[in-house]
Computed example of a mutant assay.
Amino acid sequence: MSTKIIAKFLVTAAVCLSLFILFLLGGCSSGEPAPQAVTPKVSVLSIKPQSQVLTTELAGRTQAFMVAQIRPQVGGIVQRRLFVEGADVKVGQALYQLDAAAYSAALAQSRASLVKYRATLKSAQATARRDAELVKINAISQQANEDAQATLLTAAADVQVAEAEVQSARINLAYTRITSPVSGRIETSTVTPGALVVANQDSALTTVQQLDPIYVDVTQSTTELLRLKRDLASGVLQSNGNGEARISLKLDDGTPYNQQGRLKVSGISVNEGTGTVTLRAEFANPDHLLLPGMYVRAVLEQARNDQAILIPQKAVTRSASGVTTALLVVDGKVEQRELTIDRAVGNQWWVTAGLKAGDQLVVEGGQKVRPGAAVQAQDINTLAATASTPAKES
């Protein structure tokens, strides 16, 4: 009897288990369908050409507009120094006073000689006039008259020599007071009162430098210069027009200088050692912020491209072999394209080949897709505008 009961129990359990399994299978088949793959989204930038000024950043040094090395033109003992070292001086301002006693005496002596020769000339003039009348009546010989006329000419020449000596002595006396030939900032003095100086000596007493305006000399490689001329000739670039390129400065600490300059001179010869030409620009320097010899970076505006293509640097990748590429969306699929880049402009690349107006450049999300994959393109400017618009209150 117990065996029959156990057998029934096992049959009933088997039936229940079968029904449970069928229930599970029926539940799975009647549920939701399996999820399908989602097309990835990428942010794209529509390429739009724009006008861009071609700038070149070049290293340079500042140079004084005018430099005057002060040297004595006569010898003597320095009596006084008449300027403050490091101060600004004006043209004609006295800088040194030399001992003038000997030159004052020389001037007095030359003046006395002039008085003497003028008196001699006056006497010779009277004799010449008298002898000219006497020779007409044969009162004196022709020889005597000719001698009187020659003496007159000699006396006149002596007066001219004496006048020149007076002028020379006056100039030498003036040279004992050494003045500045230009306005500018004066350096330290190499001599002190009591020092003996000589005319046209090799060592300068001091130096005066005009700092406003000031020159900036920069160098440009001949490769860049030739490429610029070639692009201008082909029409790829357009000249700025007036033939005088504008130029700005960055100081050694990276801060911009607050004055715009003008390119004044372009080098006409190439440095054989470096393969560069020298360009000279002129800058206003009213506050004397720029000093001679300072290192600066000059930003030179050379030409303009009205169809320049600039793209974010983050949208560009560079392979180990140096090939530069970017991802684009073409007909809903990702395409990898090789680019030619000219230079960096801020945080953007200036592209000269590989892109055209209207191309959809992948800016964000490119790391999640591969070339050939289907994607949903979203304009990054539209997304940015949407994100910046505040949500309306319900």
Rank of each mutant, 00 (worst) to 15 (best):
A34Q: 14
A112E: 13
L328M: 14
Q97C: 05
G293E: 01
F65K: 01
L152Y: 11
L237K: 01
A94S: 13
A195C: 09
A68S: 09
V218M: 15
E187D: 15
A87N: 02
E165S: 14
P49K: 07
T120G: 11
T176Y: 04
L25H: 11
N200E: 09
S113M: 11
Q367E: 13
T382A: 10
A245G: 09
A157D: 12
L173F: 04
Q376V: 14
A391S: 15
V38S: 12
I214V: 08
A245S: 14
I21L: 09
A108R: 13
E282P: 02
T154S: 09
V345A: 06
G194E: 01
P286E: 01
M1H: 10
A303Q: 04
N305G: 00
F9S: 12
S388Y: 05
G241R: 03
S183N: 03
E244L: 15
Q36Y: 07
S51M: 09
T255Y: 05
N347C: 05
Y96M: 01
I247F: 03
Q210L: 13
L153K: 15
I6N: 04
Q36V: 12
Q259I: 03
R177N: 12
T176M: 05
S18K: 06
P390R: 01
I380W: 03
A100R: 13
V323T: 11
D342E: 13
G243P: 00
L95R: 00
L107Y: 02
L19T: 08
R170H: 09
A357T: 08
P40S: 06
M66D: 08
E32Q: 02
L24S: 09
L279F: 11
Q63S: 09
G293H: 00
G27N: 14
V197N: 00
V135K: 03
E393R: 07
K356P: 03
L25C: 06
V53G: 00
D131L: 12
R246M: 07
V270L: 03
R71I: 12
Q348F: 06
G75M: 04
V53H: 11
A94C: 03
L211K: 01
V166M: 07
I171W: 09
R262L: 09
